[in-house]
Write a protein that binds this DNA or RNA. Structure first.
Lengths: 179, 179
DNA sequence: ATGCGATAGTTCAATCTTCAACTACATCCG
DNA sequence: CGGATGTAGTTGAAGATTGAACTATCGCAT
């Protein structure tokens, strides 16, 4: 490590632009969503994951993975979502240590209301500035980085699938329910 | 906004890979630096900015910009660095609202000790996986995004410049000193 | 000069995250 | 079976971040 050469200007620029662009982007998306829907990006991503899981809900640890959150952070955050009535917990039948989180109808509504804002923000702040080649190059390059970092979650299905899954959430969920 | 089309699978993948790669990367770099040198990445970046500013130090707001930190966050963080003896504050002569932060010799040592670890982490977790074309494409694409987000800080000079600047920090700094 | 809006930075309280226990259950192996 | 070890998730306290309010100063226009 001590014989690692310093970065050359291009390497520095690569790191620099990645750090700054992603940080600013996340900051902006979070601010927009929070401002318009009182829903921090972290909560939005929890809701999306739960929506995709449909009425089965998702294990806490699975959810933590998807939301890039530590377990304990997720516990607290889900608590707040439960207080807000957007999520409910359910016990797991087959593994009694386990806990599921599941979207409530209010959670589903909240998510449906916020989704266009998020997508618009993504276009306005990210995608609109990238042509097809830029996007392909980004996916290629960052895909390799992600692999090297041992992150192997597959990309999410889109809003169509979310809506599909959401249709399966019965309008009266929120109390008891399937594990 | 409500007529914004949903993302297609490639757009989703672009966003997904950017979010996950950058988040995991930052997490990893922070963990490595904290583990090995008890210096969170956020603090490391403050120290680098201060080192590049040499013995003049840097205005708090300028430093906040460079460290991607809110003003209030920076105030707290610099307080902790001051408690640790790595940084000192100094008043600004020409604008008495202003405050400068400046590296102490201990801060300089800390930074010099940690820098190889950070560079090695950057190589191992990011740069080693990208060929020249990948890097150029990343800079092109994310440069556009960064511009669109209104972030216009120019890339930092490298460790050579840091060392250069550090040489200018007198060995007995840390008490009074230039604004 | 003087008053007014802008700017630099800090402070304080509320909120959020972290980290290290801790509980409870599962699984493995003899 | 039964004890050891591992895994899922929560808890609670300490520490960090946020955002609004606040202090102090600046710079400009009158």
């Amino acid at each position: 490590m001590d014989d690692t050469p310093w970065l050359d200007p291009e390497e520095r620029a690569t790191w620099f632009v990645l750090a700054r662009a992603s940080s600013r982007l996340l900051e902006r998306l979070d601010a927009e969503l929070t401002e318009a829907h009182d829903l921090p990006l972290a909560d939005y991503e929890i809701l999306v994951s739960l929506a995709l899981a449909g009425c089965d809900g998702l294990r806490m640890s699975e959810l933590a993975d998807r939301a890039l959150s530590s377990r304990s952070r997720l516990t607290h955050r889900v608590n707040r979502l439960v207080e807000r009535g957007l999520v409910v917990r359910a016990a797991c039948e087959t593994d009694r240590r386990g806990a599921f989180a599941r979207l409530t109808p209010q959670g589903r509504d909240r998510l449906e209301a916020a989704a266009p804002c998020h997508v618009a923000g993504l276009r306005r702040n990210l995608l609109d500035h990238l042509d097809r080649d830029d996007q392909a190059a980004l996916r290629r390059a960052l895909g390799k980085v992600r692999d090297a970092l041992g992150d192997d979650l597959e990309p999410l299905p889109g809003m169509a699938a979310v809506r599909e899954a959401l249709r399966a959430v019965p309008a009266d969920a929120g109390h008891a329910g399937r594990p």
